[in-house]
Write a protein that binds this DNA or RNA. Structure first.
Lengths: 207, 207
DNA sequence: GCATGTGAAAATCTTCACAGCA
DNA sequence: TGCTGTGAAGATTTTCACATGC
């Protein structure tokens, strides 16, 4: 394989492939072809092969891909081959929803700390987790947690982001519908739920 | 302006511009330049001008854009110039979070119906909304609601999607970490929270 | 003068098509 | 034969740079 700059889009798709492969493996598919997976995901087979090729190629020509092997490779690339412990900041409705979300496991993600500013919530236990006061955020560095989810009201989001960065967090998933600024070394992904809904009407035909 | 196929990416960005413009207007900016907005959003000014030009151009050369006017135009394009009423299916943790989410208002989105399968929840009132049994989904057509949010466990998601389609829903925002199939005429956008988190470690440098 | 609107160039991403190997 | 890996072609998207009109 030659050198190729890896397209951002290819990286973005890896978690999609991973989820599909895990599902197919569970269905008993020990091996898959790019066609198999493509049909299942509703995408183009060449795209899958090309995406995989950016990372060296995971298959055997004439045969296909060993499901388990590809899963292992993708997890390694995405640095999900170890359990990634994640902190949750804000245990309101959205925070509770995140804690109850059933989809983290397949990616090796685990919420292992939860914080809130509300004294009434601090100390409460939810699913083996004891909610801590946000002033404890600085303990994250000691705990080796460098991933965090922000699920607080918009006006508190920036302050929480600042505290997380100070605590050594390197990746933040932000659910507040607002902009947050962080140093370049920190990666932020924001999900504005309303924005996704707002895109739908454009594509809906009248009537 | 000549004919141009409108890039999907341009459409995807409109809600981002809209949110930014609404914010700037609230800050008192009656008019903005592409530079203003670009700086605020951290994007390229040409991109904004180009995106706007696909829809005919909203500004005055040499002067800039009237904030309010552009907002109105974008809302119209996105079909958000009327209040879009939306149904919520599944009033668990995630559903409650959606109901409490503060970001819908700016887009003219409103959750005006909520459904659950749990008899213990049906009949309860939350924020002026009475939770209905999912068997009532078919009333959506009569109510003129054609947008819906699915926030149920993955194993129930497909069934709910089927019921929504039958009820005439044309756009679905799906929060379940699973694939759902719908007729081509229905637009589905899925958000797998875990997938976004799973992308972060790749971009985080070690240490 | 100044900022938009827009062809054209550049960059990025996707799909094709086939060589090569099991 | 069958399926991967991959150059090359094609499509899409972004950025540039400047003519145009206020």
């Amino acid at each position: 394989m030659r050198y190729h700059k890896i397209p951002n889009e290819a990286v973005r798709r890896l978690p999609i492939y991973l989820r599909g492969l895990l599902f197919l493996l569970e269905q008993g598919q020990q091996s898959v072809s790019s066609r198999n997976l493509a049909d299942f995901l509703g995408v183009n087979p060449s795209q899958i092969r090309k995406d995989f090729s950016y990372f060296g190629g995971f298959g055997t020509p004439g045969v296909g891909y060993k499901t388990e092997k590809v899963i292992k490779q993708i997890k390694k690339i995405l640095k999900l081959d170890v359990v990634r412990r994640t902190a949750l900041v804000g245990v309101g409705n959205l925070g509770l929803a995140v804690l109850a979300y059933p989809g983290f496991g397949v990616y090796g993600l685990e919420i292992t700390a939860a914080f809130d500013i509300d004294p009434k919530k601090v100390g409460k236990k939810i699913k083996n987790l004891t909610i801590e006061d946000v002033s404890n955020l600085r303990t994250l560095r000691r705990k080796g947690i460098d991933l965090a989810i922000i699920a607080v009201p918009p006006d508190a989001a920036q302050k929480m982001a600042d505290a997380l960065v100070k605590a050594g967090v390197k990746g933040i998933l932000n659910f507040s519908p607002c902009y947050i600024e962080v140093p370049k070394k920190v990666k932020v992904v924001s999900i504005d739920i309303a924005m996704y809904l707002a895109r739908l009407p454009y594509y809906m035909r009248a009537g």
